[in-house]
Design a binder for these strands. Structure first.
Lengths: 332, 332
DNA sequence: TTGTAGGCGTTATCAC
DNA sequence: GTGATAACGCCTACAA
């Protein structure tokens, strides 16, 4: 910056002002400076700026997985929103591990992010402590924690699964199996399972067909393997409700290859409305959740939290996101 | 840090050393300091550290889209690799726009990343200039540019598509259509198209069935729409080669709903080996590219570029990544 | 093993 | 509208 200032015959301060276009530099001077900046390929160092202003311009974001179109879409949408107000995304990949989450939160915090965004899938006690003490707005996504830290954007997975199960019962299914992961304590998958069980119990039905298979997250392949063991898991079952569309698609594929007809012999239902459920044949009935909506609402919340905030309405702590039941060909 | 130092009865310097565990602090002192750090919830400020050491610890990464399992997987793998050596991922989303790429490169550079990773899909002249002058290692992925800036990790899309087309011809297909996007200049999709055309011309076949539809990136839906206009696009065609698996799946779905048999009436081929092509019925023949491999090799290259670098072998400028033809049920 | 002095590249603040 | 000065919070280099 010194070099630019000398070349332009002004002080560093004036260059700094010209660069930030704060309006207090005469147009002529500013034009001259900008030309020199371009010619000298000068790129300001933002870590120095951060140090001086105490504004990092970072949005720390954690994801369990990117190879899941929900998270991928919400991150992508969030990325667009925050870039539009000049913030940058610091991304961490937890791989569904609370230990990694803890470690990532710790390293993110060293960057003094202006907000920290992460899905709620259960946090370790230390993660909770770090987040609370950080003095940074925390946005938990995808689930409504019983004890939110600050802000939440999402829906109740339990309630969504309960609604779907209740609707299946209303459609006449009685022996419904639920396919989910092993070791899913505190995850959103476990919340869905709880919602399923609640609906079944409320209807006086048995929850004896709980299939637990594979580590989170369940994949198409896990579903295929479960579906291949039809006799073992699905004897006398009339409907298979899967914790997500991926295993639902796998179950469906396995059924097809055994000439088990869907939905005539057995129904298959997923959760998430991933693209694959829409284009499989038969198309899979599922619970539609609005991934882009989560990214978009998170982005808006960040804008209101950090930005000029023209909007005078109060900032609410919980932003609900739509959930809908999508009926397709895989159910009668 | 001052507070911690005072409480521990040492100087700030000793605290700084203890925190970084540089070995020059007596175990007893360090233990005492660490305890106080934990108790006071002190979190070092890395932007100050960056300023002092001139090491940001950032890996700047650009992606055209995350809602594409190739990019999602490679970013995820890369994320794991870089986090393991204490670096953090700064993510930018270009949405396949060279203008946004340029803007993102500019804002990333202000953070002084230690390396910048981006897919090659053509850069604007200014992007090229910025990258070259930045004095930061640049890793271009997914395609081999004719004029790489520094390092490349990827394969030739043109050559891969040429191989697939040549193999289709060898299997007896003659009237092969190629489905790709409009306005794909300089993209990897265009390279695939060129490879297809090369193979056809080399075999003395006509390239009259070039279907151009939709803006990049092509989706399942685009494919479905193209496939639905069978008479318009695929009269007398015996094989449809799509620029990626997504439109291939869409084309296949559209054919099925018109009772057009695949592969008996017409073959369908994709590019990418996305999960959907493996589990569709019929499963789709495709060109398998190793997304995780790209992430992993990029990560390794970064480790060698920045890390201790125990490996004495020279660092090569181009790291090739495997491409294979996967034959499935959608071709005879 | 520990401490002191100085600087990293910006910006806030106050003066002109 | 522009400039001088003093931080911002850490680390390098050197000294003890």
């Amino acid at each position: 910056m010194e070099d630019v200032a000398r070349t332009a015959g002004v002080s560093r301060m004036t260059v700094s002002r010209a660069l930030r276009d704060d309006g207090s530099v005469s147009p002529a001077t500013r034009a001259r400076i900008m030309k020199i900046v371009a010619r000298m390929n000068y790129v300001p160092d933002q870590s120095a700026g951060t140090l001086a202003t105490k504004r990092s311009g970072f949005v720390a974001t954690l994801v369990p997985s990117l190879n899941n179109s929900h998270f991928a879409e919400s991150v992508q949408t969030l990325s667009d929103e925050v870039e539009s107000i000049g913030l940058q995304l610091l991304l961490g990949h937890t791989a569904y591990s609370t230990a990694r989450e803890e470690q990532l939160v710790e390293s993110m915090l060293k960057r003094r992010p202006e907000v920290i965004v992460l899905p709620f899938d259960g946090h370790s006690p230390r993660t909770n402590r770090l987040l609370k003490q950080a003095n940074v707005p925390v946005i938990e996504q995808w689930e409504i924690p019983s004890k939110p830290i600050d802000y939440t954007v999402g829906f109740s997975n339990r309630e969504a699964a309960r609604r779907m199960a209740a609707a299946l019962i209303e459609r006449g299914y009685r022996n419904i199996a639920f396919v989910s992961e092993e070791d899913d304590a505190w995850t959103r998958g476990a919340a869905r399972r709880a919602g399923f069980e609640q609906a079944m119990l409320e209807a006086g039905l048995s929850t004896s067909h709980m299939v637990r298979y594979g580590k989170p997250p369940m994949t198409i392949e896990h579903g295929y393997e479960v579906g291949s063991a039809f006799k073992r898991y699905f004897n006398s079952v009339d409907c298979v409700f899967c914790v997500s569309d991926a295993p639902a698609f796998g179950v469906l594929s396995a059924f097809k290859s055994q000439n088990i007809r869907v939905p005539e012999d057995i129904a298959v239902v997923g959760f998430g409305n991933f693209e694959v459920s829409r284009f499989s044949s038969p198309a899979i009935s599922t619970v539609e959740v609005d991934a882009k909506g989560i990214g978009r609402e998170t982005g808006r919340l960040i804008c209101r939290l950090l930005g000029g905030n023209e909007d005078p309405s109060p900032i609410v702590r919980h932003t609900p996101v739509d959930v809908q039941l999508r009926w397709r060909e895989s159910t009668l």
